[in-house]
């Protein structure tokens, strides 16, 4: 039944959207159609949808591994930034050589960077039982400042008029475009491969079952002999690797340069994507596409409907809200009862 609530949430959000469009004096149905479908109008826009969805899906799949096991990695944003730093280091130092191994090396370095950043909270959790939510969240700020330091300092483009940005990355350090005439690059394929891999591992290998059991019931996991520490390490590192690779995807893809604000907040948005997708790789593909669509639709709202872009945040929030509500209502039954008279309560005592 629980797969139903995302669909229910989408339906309810659409209903509210209709009301909002009508209240704003627009024709509600044609507005909704335009809101949802105009970002899919042509090949270029479709490519945009994919390149925005790819990092969200990639990170969300990585995070979902931990979330299944009750490992709350909120640090994907920082892990993504570490991917930018490690991958960026390779790109800036070896990109100009034009060697074919530069791109794979960037991905590897990004993965190592993300994993390195996730290892801190994992270590603190397993060794000192420190709350990984707090430690991973705080490291996001450290990562952002580290990247700022690099881009303001050693990595600043000498030809860039002192502006905080690196040199443009060499062509060898950029993802090849897979759809001519768009910005859609092989980052999308990387994301889909990750989805497939994690699907197989989570559903067909014992480690996936272990993580699920650990998340559902700690006593049952102990009884089965599934190590909670192992789950923390696997959960954190998988999230870190995925976020690190997503970070490389940003600089090797749409940015093509390193900025202090390399991450547009994908590390946080991916948390919503993961839950909206029910922590299932296939669900995450859909929720990632939906989330990406909402981002693009927010721009449409401004461009052709004359509505404020805040509407994207509004719809994202509503989607999550309705899904959580639907979860509760599916699991529990609401019973409307007349208030019990005070006397009866008294007697019941």
């Amino acid at each position: 039944m629980l797969w139903l609530s995302p669909l229910l949430a989408i339906a309810l959000t659409s209903v509210v959207a209709l009301v909002i469009f009508a209240a704003a004096g627009r024709d509600p149905f044609s507005s909704l159609v335009r809101f949802l479908f105009s970002p899919l109008g042509d090949l270029y826009s479709f490519g945009e949808l994919l390149i925005k969805a790819a990092p969200l899906i990639l990170i969300a799949v990585g995070l979902s591994v931990g979330f299944r096991a009750g490992v709350w990695n909120i640090g994907a944003e920082g892990q993504l930034v570490l991917g930018v730093i490690f991958g960026g280091w390779v790109a800036l130092n070896y990109g100009p050589s034009g060697a074919p191994w530069v791109l794979p090396a960037m991905l590897l370095a990004g993965a190592i960077g993300g994993a390195f950043w996730a290892a801190g909270p994992a270590f603190l959790k397993t060794r000192f039982n420190a709350n990984e939510i707090l430690t991973s969240l705080m490291l996001n700020y450290v990562a952002a400042l580290w990247l700022s330091y690099l881009v303001f300092g050693p990595w600043r483009d000498p030809m860039g008029f002192n502006f905080p940005q690196s040199e443009p990355l060499a062509p060898a350090a950029l993802f090849p475009i897979i759809i001519e005439g768009t910005r859609a690059n092989i980052g999308i394929i990387v994301a889909l491969l990750t989805v497939a891999l994690s699907w197989v591992v989570l559903s067909r290998r014992l480690v996936g079952f272990e993580l699920k059991v650990t998340g559902l019931s700690a006593p049952a996991a102990r009884y089965a002999g599934f190590s909670a520490r192992r789950a923390v390490w696997i959960g954190m590192l998988t999230g870190g690797v995925a976020a690190g690779i997503a970070g490389v995807g940003e600089i090797a893809g749409p940015l093509a340069q390193i900025f202090p604000t390399a991450s547009p907040g994908y590390g946080y948005a991916a948390i919503i994507v993961a839950f909206l997708g029910r922590l299932h790789p296939v669900g995450i593909v859909f929720s990632g596409l939906l989330m990406s669509l909402l981002y693009l639709s927010g721009d449409v709202a401004q461009m052709s409907l004359g509505l404020p872009s805040a509407i994207t945040g509004l719809f994202q929030g509503m989607l999550l809200f309705f899904m959580l509500a639907a979860d509760v209502l599916i699991r529990y039954r609401v019973r409307w009862r007349r208030a019990v008279p005070a006397l009866a309560l008294e007697a019941a005592r």
């Binding site: 059991v213 559902l216 019931s217 006593p219 049952a220 009884y223 089965a224 002999g225 599934f226």
Partner: peptide, 25 residues
Amino acid sequence: DARQRRALGLCSVPEDRLGRGAIPS
């Protein structure tokens, strides 16, 4: 741990059935 002991041939049945001996969902 429990899994390693099971490999040595020791199995166990806990007194809590739901949430330990079995996972309800």
